[in-house]
Amino acid sequence: MFWLCKAALPHMPPGATIINTTSIQSYQPSPGLLDYASTKAAITAFTHALARQVIDRGIRVNGVAPGPVWTPLQPSGGQPQEKVEQFGSEVPMKRPGQPAELAPIYVVLASQESSFVTGEIYGVTGGNHLP
């Protein structure tokens, strides 16, 4: 992520935006996901810091922190079937999100509709709140 942003920034005009994907695990880590949660926490910190670093160039940096989202990894991730069947049931909405439910926040963050937003992490979490 660091190298990609470093390479892209010289080509980005004022008004451009960077959108990173982190996770609710950055804020509410599961004990069994130590490595994953730690990397997502680094992305969250990177997003906040980069937003401050490039704001004078008119570039915005934000992030999206999904909660449980149904992807092809869930049934193929080596988890027991009963765990796959319960995936997402622990969130207030009692279900996993679908990828199409994440797309609108990325579209808004990429558009001028969010021109006064930078350094923010948006949760798409099924009701679990980010701090």
Rank of each mutant, 00 (worst) to 15 (best):
L130F: 15
T118K: 05
P10D: 05
P68G: 05
G63K: 03
T47W: 12
N128L: 15
D56W: 08
A103V: 15
P75E: 01
V84G: 02
G58C: 04
P104S: 01
I24T: 09
G63N: 07
V108H: 14
P68D: 13
D35Q: 08
A7H: 11
P92M: 09
Q79N: 03
G67S: 07
E85S: 03
A37H: 10
W70G: 00
Y36Q: 03
Y27I: 02
L9V: 03
I19E: 04
L73R: 04
A41W: 10
Y36P: 09
P10N: 04
L102H: 05
V107G: 00
E85F: 03
G78S: 03
P10L: 08
N62V: 05
V124K: 08
P75V: 05
G126K: 09
K83D: 05
S30M: 10
A37S: 15
L102Y: 08
I19C: 12
A100E: 13
P13F: 13
Q112K: 14
Q81M: 04
Q98C: 04
T39G: 11
K94L: 06
V124P: 11
G88R: 06
L102K: 01
I43W: 11
E85A: 11
P75M: 02
W3I: 00
D56N: 10
M12L: 15
D56C: 06
S26A: 15
I121E: 00
E82Q: 12
R52C: 05
E82H: 15
E101N: 03
S76Q: 12
V117P: 06
G77M: 04
A8W: 13
V54N: 00
N128Y: 14
H129V: 12
S89N: 11
E90F: 15
M93D: 03
K83F: 12
E85L: 14
A49C: 07
A16C: 07
A103N: 02
P66S: 02
I18W: 14
